[in-house]
Design a protein around this nucleic acid. Structure first.
Lengths: 194, 194
DNA sequence: GGATAAAACGGAGATTGTCTCCGTAAAACA
DNA sequence: TGTTTTACGGAGACAATCTCCGTTTTATCC
């Protein structure tokens, strides 16, 4: 089994391949969240300025594309945390990151149900994502607590639960707006008692 | 609003229309549970011996057909309870009904997730179904308790929960077999202590 | 039991989506 | 710069969705 090493990068990957992959993912994320998980893949290819063949070479099935979009979003969140943590004051970092989290939830709300009703649906993707996100919010909150900007008795995950919770009471379309207001309210309410 | 009475049945519905509707539902149930919720609707029409136009006249969208199949299954369950209760001894009625419930769960496992990821998905269908099923199992168990065939401290819904619970540990394909064995085990274990 | 009108049928076909194949083009390597 | 490897892209085969309308069947009224 496993005839050779995990990867044998005999060559540098072609620059246009990477560019195209990027653009397809970008367009796909917008299309999925805007028009649902069953938009035409050929349409996505067209909008990304590539042929259908190119899209299908990068992502052989709709499921593969959905998974890739989701994975990318999670990684964006994780990367944002690392960046914000070193370039912004604690409270601002938290606020901006929570704003990104709202966008992430919007795509998650579309993609996860779609993946669940597909043949070879994969729980594996979801497992790792939870880990990354929990780590990020923990670090962001810790830093803001240590700097005295947040109450020390704050459960980090509760902030995210509050945002996610809106999705069940607000109409899907209006969700991001409500959630973004919530970010300010939550942070305001989480400051230490003077 | 509501210009006239809910229904003005000016005519008796045509016999072939009813027959066809019936046959389409029958074939659709088999197709959905056998091959998933995205089988070709034209195929279903062909197998039912009608043209595509006929299928689409009865059920304008895939969602409508899925809903109709589900609703029909629930009504079958309710009707079976009414029949069994008057024609069988209590324990046999319960056993046979639970056997039907296993089949019902198999289609529910396919249809509900599919409906949930569709545009105008409707929670209304599910609401009434739960009511009907709860009523049925309650009556069946009561009767068997009164006749002394079941322990009086039995929570009726637990019997169904046990069956439904298998679906999360057994592979989807092998599910009905495991569940049917469970029916015997459950009933055996539910008899009064001698 | 016809005659008549309403209702339903069915399938051809327009439209749209999926996915592949392969000749062409571009990038990496030497 | 020449060669080789990799990727591109779009034509087109195939399949599914859904509609339109001429034909057939059915209920109803004499």
């Amino acid at each position: 089994m496993s005839p050779d090493s995990p990867e044998t990068p005999s060559r540098k990957p072609r620059a246009d391949a990477l560019r195209n992959r990027e653009r397809i993912l970008d367009v796909a994320r917008a299309a999925f969240t805007g028009f649902g998980a069953d938009v035409s893949l050929d349409d996505i290819a067209r909008q990304a300025g590539v042929g259908p063949g190119t899209l299908y070479r990068h992502f052989p099935t709709r499921e593969a594309l959905l998974e890739a979009v989701y994975r990318t979003e999670v990684e964006k969140l994780a990367a944002a945390e690392r960046e914000f943590a070193t370039t912004m004051p604690p409270l601002e970092a938290l606020r901006k990151w929570m704003g990104l989290f709202v966008d992430y939830m919007a795509t998650k709300l579309i993609i996860v149900p779609a993946l669940n009703t597909m043949a070879g649906s994969s729980p594996r993707v979801m497992e790792s994502s939870g880990e990354l996100i929990r780590g990020a919010i923990n670090r962001l909150v810790s830093r803001a607590v240590e700097s005295g900007d947040l109450r020390p008795d704050l459960e980090p995950l509760d902030l995210l639960r509050a945002l996610a919770g809106i999705s069940s009471v607000a109409p899907v379309a209006a969700w991001p707006q409500s959630a973004k207001k919530m970010v300010d309210i939550l942070i305001l309410g989480s400051r230490p008692t003077p």
